[in-house]
Write a protein that binds this DNA or RNA. Structure first.
Lengths: 217, 217
DNA sequence: ACCTGAACACCGTTCAAGT
DNA sequence: ACCTGAACACCGTTCAAGT
């Protein structure tokens, strides 16, 4: 046969397989050779579809961001929309925690990340938040969500009671690992509610009273 | 001479130099060979002082955490103490952003990180927060601080106006990079104040009214 | 157009050998 | 006790060669 009828690889297949390997073995364990082997080809073949390994990671990160639901910004008031977006955002990241350190560095040039930033910022400005304030709120929520997904708080504590003997208040810390999911979820919801509560108070003080409803063009 | 009078290396010198290299060139650029070269020795020499490269990174991370000031927990009410701790914590991380992705994975077995967790948790419990609540609050604040230091929000946007043409609300996003520090600082303070405001409201609702002042042993 | 083998300049880590 | 040279099994990436 003069040419294979169809290419062995595609960008989509590379991204899907890379994400599966990262989920299974961690970001550090992903090498171009191992990824290629999982796809049934040799390492250099990947370079016919992506210029660098970082470009593959960008595509993986964006495929995760693409699953975040921002539709709440058209349907609910700004505060409830922020809450629903943050919950969806965190769920998307928590499903693939190993890619979060890479993803959390910023949107860069990734289309889904930029579309998300656009929806959030636009939603806040439409609600009457001054543009600079909208930027700060979007950043603060991203800080919180990224931090919450970046490595479980509970899993960060080693399951070794002896380690905590010297710390009077941490005598139960070794149990955290066993309740990882509920601790992380509970902490996330508590902090998110507090954050939104505080923002709502700020909104009442500085936006609702000071501007007529039609002040934004 | 039969033996060098004193060792060329020490754990402290290795950690200091490693942090300087990470600050200058990023975490990915730190290799054992480059670190050794900066110290005037060969790569394998490092293994006389640390068992693995990860152990070096642990020590670097802990040296950063050690600069966080937790003394506010003895001197102020829980809310003001949380605020001062969070500001100090963020300042420590923001001074060395390139190590944050490593550091933010959790305290692990690092002594300074464990001491900090102990001080925060202990301070909250002493103030009357139920233990499970104290855990959640400590986690939520860590999420927020780690996320805020993990990569500048503003720097995450590329300085290329053409990139944002397709996103109606992001037309000014390319300017963010120029205001990096003020955007990130402003967002951090706004979110921190909101978070603490919300927690204070929660405290009034669920702790102050329900327990007599002496309820905690 | 897309995949491959060989090669380059790197990695982290081990270990026998030196002083 | 601590540093070194040589070696091992890996990396990301390039490129001429194949079909």
């Amino acid at each position: 046969m003069p040419r294979p009828r169809q290419a062995l690889l595609s960008r989509e297949r590379i991204v899907t397989t890379a994400l599966a390997l990262i989920d299974a073995d961690g970001l550090a364990a992903l090498s171009t050779r191992r990824l290629a082997a999982a796809l049934g080809v040799q390492g250099p073949s990947l370079y016919n579809h992506f210029a660098t390994k970082d470009e593959i990671l960008d595509a993986v990160a964006d495929s995760v961001t693409a699953t975040v639901d921002v539709s709440a910004f058209g349907r609910y008031d700004w505060c409830e929309a922020l809450r629903r977006w943050a919950v969806s955002y965190r769920a998307a990241l928590a499903a693939h925690p190993n890619i979060v350190p890479y993803l959390a560095q910023g949107p860069g040039r990734r289309p889904a990340a930029l579309a998300m930033a656009d929806a959030v910022y636009g939603g806040l400005v439409r609600a009457g938040w001054p543009p600079a304030r909208a930027t700060h709120i979007g950043a603060a929520l991203r800080y919180y969500v990224a931090g919450s997904a970046l490595g479980s708080f509970a899993r960060g504590f080693v399951e070794d009671p002896a380690l905590y003997a010297a710390h009077p208040h941490l005598s139960q810390a070794h149990r955290l690992a066993g309740h990882q999911r509920s601790v992380d979820e509970g902490a996330f919801v508590l902090g998110l509610d507090a954050l939104l509560h505080g923002l709502a108070a700020e909104y009442e003080r500085t936006v609702a009273g000071l501007e007529p409803a039609t002040a934004r063009e």
